[in-house]
């Protein structure tokens, strides 16, 4: 049963559409990963789904009331202590003190109750953000870039909390710009690009589809790199490299284009591309023999 449905949603600022024609349906128990480069419109879409922003086009329908939200950079400048801040949130959500203390304990903040929020590290601030979101027994958790700037311990801790939440039947929707940070291989992925939802599917299907990371921008520039990818893949700009996501069958087309331009071996010393999925049985031995690099990745 869909608990959040967006149909043809668009948000415009001045004359520019920040997101356009987005249709998405979140069902109870789903894990949705909104994936896309910075500026793709992920956060804007989340705000629309949460009714923080009103869409200029389309409709959003939400059937759940108890929602927990973790904004991207919340609570940075507050001089209140962790305990005082949580008391404020708990009072607004009409939560008991026990429930508040449980949320603090779940997020590992019980030893930081008297620390001013503004003095917390990024990881602990993120924990606090999650703690307030967990108040009131939410049915849906929405997290905006929850894994940014976290060390391994914090990442593991937050992942464990979210695991528990999902185990108890919760629904999770989160944004990320890194495909390499999956929360769950059972997640559904919505790939956003320039404000549009360009692809949706299961994360493990995308893993099968191949993750291709190409160190291109330094040598080629974005425009040429994109012309090589063409319509076969989506891309995310990480500054000095572009991460491309495409289906396996499209990969061969793209690689052929690279090969035609003699880019694969002549221009780069580092591995040009990496594949995150485990090797599969070779489907095309001829191609593999011709190109060892391709054999490693595709087969």
């Amino acid at each position: 049963m869909a608990i959040v449905t967006a149909s043809g949603v668009g948000v415009r600022v001045a004359k520019t559409w920040i997101i356009q024609d987005v249709t998405l349906s979140v069902e109870r128990g789903d894990v949705w990963m909104l994936l896309g480069a910075n500026g793709a419109g992920k956060s804007t879409l989340i705000k629309v789904l949460l009714d923080i922003l009103r869409p200029d086009a389309g409709t959003v329908h939400r059937t759940v009331q108890r929602v927990g939200y973790v904004p991207q950079k919340a609570l940075a400048g507050h001089p209140l202590t962790v305990l005082e801040m949580m008391q404020y949130f708990a009072a607004l959500k009409r939560c008991s003190r026990n429930e508040m203390l449980r949320a603090l304990e779940q997020t590992g903040l019980q030893d930081h109750l008297q620390v001013p929020v503004m003095r917390l590290s990024g990881g602990y601030r993120q924990r606090l953000s999650l703690a307030q979101a967990l108040l009131g027994d939410p049915e849906l958790l929405v997290l905006d870039e929850p894994f940014v700037g976290l060390d391994e311990d914090a990442l593991a801790s937050i992942t464990a909390i979210l695991d528990r939440f999902l185990h108890n039947g919760g629904t999770l929707l989160y944004t990320t710009h890194m495909l390499g940070q999956p929360f769950s291989v059972e997640a559904k992925v919505a790939l956003m690009e320039k404000g549009r939802l360009v692809r949706t599917g299961l994360y493990r299907e995308l893993l099968h589809a191949v993750r291709l990371s190409v160190f291109l921008t330094r040598k080629l520039g974005q425009r040429e790199a994109l012309s090589l990818v063409g319509d076969h893949g989506s891309w995310m700009d990480h500054g000095d490299w572009i991460e491309m996501v495409c289906r396996k069958e499209d990969l061969l087309t793209i690689l052929n284009r690279f090969e035609e331009q003699r880019l694969l071996l002549d221009w780069f010393e580092e591995p040009l591309w990496r594949v995150s999925e485990p090797p599969e049985r070779c489907e095309n031995p001829t191609t593999c023999n011709e190109n060892p690099a391709r054999k490693e990745s595709v087969c």
Binding site: V67, Y69, G77, K93, Q132
Partner: peptide, 15 residues
């Protein structure tokens, strides 16, 4: 200041 650090957005999800 609170709008810049996302606090008001957060409050939109509160009753």
């Amino acid at each position: 200041a609170e709008r810049a650090d996302g606090f008001f957005e957060l409050m939109c999800t509160y009753p």
